[in-house]
Each structure stands twice: as C-alpha cells, then as structure tokens.
Amino acid sequence: MEASKNYRWSTLLTEVVMILVGLVFLVPFYFLFVNSVKTFGDLLSNSASWPKSFEWHNYSRAWSLTKFPSAFGNSLIITVISNLLLALFSSMAAYRMVRHDTRYNRFLFTIFVAAMVIPFQSIMIPLVKVTSWLELNDSIPGLIVCYLGFGVPLTVFLFHGFIKSIPLEIEEAARVDGTNIYGTFFRIVLPLMKPMFVTVIILNTLWIWNDYLLPSLMLQSPSLQTIPIATFAFFGQFMKQWDLALPALALGILPVIIFFLSMQKYIVEGITQGAVKG
C-alpha cells in the first residue's frame, strides 16, 4: 500500500510537469489564434493578450485574398491523385519484384533503394530542364508525374518488405483454381496489403500536402497554386500585415490539423512502421 501511495504522488508530479510542457508546446497555436482575430492596432499594442473584440472578417478577407478555395482544391487534387497512383503502381511493382525474383528485378530494386539516398535539392536544377522538355511545367498533371517519380523508391521499398511477409500458399491456391496473375493480384493480394496501404498513404499525404519546394519550381500560374505556395506568395505581399497573414496561416494549417486529429491512430502507427522499415 505504501509503495502505491508513493507512486501516486510521483505520478501526479510527473503529470503536472508534463501538462505544463504540453502548454508550452501549444503556445504558438495560442499566439496564432488570438492574434488572427484582432484588429491591427490591438495586435500591435499587445500580441500576448486575449483579443478585445473578435474580428472574424479578418478570416473572410484572408479567405478571398489568398483564393483559399482554389489553393485548397489544387492541394487536394494533387495529393489525392498522386497518392492513389503511387500506391497502385508501387504495390504492383513491389509484388512483381518479390514474386518474380529475377536478376533484372533484383537489380531494379537495388537501384530504387540506392536512389532513396539522393536528396531532392541535388537533382532539382536539372529536373526543371527535364520537365520543361517534356512540357510538364506549370501543369497539375505534370506535378503529379514528378510526385510519382519521387515517391516510387520509398513506396516500393515499404510494399516490398510487406509482401515478403504474405504467405505464398494463398496465391498458389488461387492460381491452381485458374485465376491469372492480374486476378490474383487485384482480388487476393491487394486486400491483404491494406495495412501497408494505410501506412504508405499517410506518409505520402503528409509529404505531398506540405511540400513547398517542388511545386514552387514547377507551377507558375497563380490559378495552380497549392496552399504552401499561396501562403508564401501572400506572405511576400502582405509581410507586415499580420491581421491578414495570421488568418491566412490559420486557414492553411486547418485542413492538415483536421486530417491529423481524425486519423491520429493510423498516423502514429504509420510513422512507427515507416521508421522501423525505412
């Protein structure tokens, strides 16, 4: 009994300290929110205090000035389509590489893994040249092609590790029943890979949604801007106008925060999986 009493006190102390640390972690969100609804004067005179009045029209001004619906739509299209194609093509390639372990496939897999070492910044300059030759510049499909190229190595790698753990017997039974390789893959193997699909989609979503550098090099038209690009452009223009910049930032982080809070369990699992395997 005495031990558990002792234990409770130390746990309570830990709890209090950790809550304080948690509050420190939340401070930036506090600053962002309270100042995003202040008048410019209120914001300048004291940015730590609670707002004197809530100026919600700051948000509607930022909403229309950043053309938020357009930026959100572009980000969404790019993220969703890249994700679906990336997961499909990579799972197919990984499946073939595991089940058809020829010298050629082994070589290709080695090249994929080796390419994961290449940092984006060391190929971005010639990349712009290549994409302009292929007329992929300044178009959303073109940007998606880039994400497919950059995403393939890690995604194939993750699927490759997963497929190795799927027992071959299930597929063999299907093959004996006369199902061809396509049917076997899409009807039998694909459903078995669901957990890895979740991991892959989460990792790729966080990467593509938040990416700034690649779209900034690829997209020039204002109508094609993604959220990070639109935010950057807006910031350049309204640098010191915090009553516009802060609501724009709050709007910008809102979708990904909602995504995180609703998918939290899968995200944490995906991160752990990805870290162990990657």
Binding site: A115, I118, S122, G149, V152
Partner: peptide, 11 residues
C-alpha cells in the same frame, strides 16, 4: 518509367 524520367535522368 516515372522513376527514370524524374530521378535518373536529372541525376
């Protein structure tokens, strides 16, 4: 194909 165009060629 995507890998060759986007990573190998620029590299």
């Amino acid at each position: 194909v995507f890998f060759l165009i986007i990573i190998v060629t620029p590299f």
